[in-house]
C-alpha cells in the first residue's frame, strides 16, 4: 500500500458516501411517513441518470443546469405514482404489498429504459468529469467533490424543509404517529404524496452524480436498491441522520477493506457488518425502538 492510499480511500469514501446518503435520505423519508419499502428508489436513480444523459445529448444542456428540469420532473413522477398506486395500499400486509407495487413500477421503468436506450453501459461526460484534483499523491475527479457538495446542499435543503417549514412539522408528525397527526388536523394524504414526491425528487440529483461517477445500464438498479435499503436499515428506518451515517459507514468500510486487504471481499465484509449491527441493535444505529407497532 503506497503512502496516501488509505487517506485517499477514506476521502473517496466520504465523497461517494455523501451521494448515497442523499438517495438513502429520500428512501428513509418515504419509509418513515408512508410505512412502506420503496423498491423503486433504485430505478428512479437510474432514471434520473438517463434524464441527465438525454438532456445533455439531445439538447446540449449541462449536467448541473439540467437539474432545473429533472428535479421537478422526478417530483411530479413521484407524486403521480403515490396518487395512482401507493395510496391504494391498505394497512393489511402493507410491507409485502408495497414491495410488490414498487417492484412492478421498477420493471415498467426498466422496460421503458431498455426499449429506448438498450442495455449498453452509458456514462455522463463533462469537463469536470474528466478533470481531476491532485490530492494525497493521487488524482480525484472533480465531479466527486462537486457531486458531494451538491448532495450536501440537497441534504441541507431536506433538513430545512423537515425542521423549519410547516410541511416539515406535518411530515414529522405523520412519521411519529399517523393517526394522531390526522386527529390534530394534519392532512396525512397530502403529506404522504408530497413526501413520496420529495423522496423521488432527490433521485434526480443522486442519479446525475451517480451517472457521472460510474457507468450505468437500466439493470443497475438492483444492486443500487439493495445498497440503499441496507444503508437505511443500518442507520435506522425513518431516520434521515441515520441514513447519512449509514451511507458513510458502507462506503468507507468498503473502500478501506479494498485498499487494506482485497476488493474481492470488500462488499461481503460490509454486508457482514450490517448483519452483525442489526443483530446487536435490531432498530439500526439511530432508529427508535419500535418505530411503529408492527
Amino acid at each position: 500500500m503506497s503512502a496516501g492510499t488509505l487517506e485517499m480511500a477514506i476521502l473517496d469514501g466520504i465523497l461517494t458516501g455523501g451521494v448515497y446518503a442523499l438517495m438513502a435520505a429520500g428512501l428513509t423519508l418515504i419509509f418513515g411517513v408512508l410505512d412502506m419499502i420503496n423498491i423503486a428508489q433504485g430505478i428512479f436513480v437510474i432514471l434520473g441518470a438517463y434524464a441527465s444523459y438525454s438532456l445533455e445529448h439531445s439538447f446540449g444542456i449541462g449536467l448541473f443546469e439540467g437539474l432545473i428540469i429533472t428535479i421537478p420532473a422526478m417530483f411530479l413522477l413521484g407524486a403521480f405514482i403515490e396518487w395512482a398506486f401507493i395510496r391504494r395500499l391498505g394497512e393489511y400486509n402493507r410491507v409485502s404489498m408495497s414491495i410488490l407495487v414498487t417492484y412492478a413500477v421498477t420493471i415498467v421503468i426498466e422496460g421503458v429504459l431498455l426499449l429506448h436506450f438498450g442495455s449498453n453501459y452509458r456514462s455522463l461526460t463533462a469537463s469536470y468529469v474528466t478533470q481531476s484534483f491532485h490530492v494525497f499523491g493521487n488524482y480525484l475527479p472533480k465531479i466527486y467533490l462537486y457531486g458531494f457538495l451538491l448532495a450536501l446542499a440537497s441534504v441541507l435543503v431536506l433538513y430545512f424543509i423537515l425542521y423549519k417549514t410547516r410541511l416539515g412539522v406535518s411530515v414529522r408528525a405523520a412519521m411519529d404517529n399517523r393517526f394522531a397527526a390526522q386527529l390534530v388536523g394534519v392532512e396525512v394524504k397530502r403529506v404522504s404524496t408530497l413526501t413520496f414526491a420529495i423522496g423521488v425528487a432527490v433521485t434526480a440529483v443522486g442519479g446525475m452524480v451517480f451517472g457521472a461517477v460510474q457507468p450505468f445500464t437500466p439493470n443497475s438498479s438492483y444492486d443500487l436498491i439493495s445498497r440503499l435499503l441496507t444503508i437505511v436499515v443500518l442507520g435506522g428506518l425513518g431516520s434521515v441522520g441515520g441514513a447519512l451515517v449509514g451511507a458513510l459507514v458502507m462506503v468507507v468500510v468498503e473502500d478501506i477493506i479494498s485498499v487494506a486487504w482485497t476488493p474481492t471481499w470488500a462488499t461481503l465484509i460490509y454486508f457482514a457488518v450490517l448483519v452483525i449491527v442489526l443483530l446487536l441493535k435490531p432498530q439500526g444505529l439511530f432508529g427508535q425502538r419500535e418505530v411503529r407497532a408492527q
Binding site: 435499503l229 454486508f271 448483519v275 435490531p282
Partner: peptide, 17 residues
C-alpha cells in the same frame, strides 16, 4: 430475530453475501 421491515433487508443482505 428482526422485525418485518428489517427482516426483508437482512434477507437481501444475506442473498448478496
Amino acid at each position: 430475530r428482526t422485525k418485518r421491515h428489517t427482516f426483508v433487508v437482512i434477507t437481501i443482505a444475506a442473498f448478496f453475501i
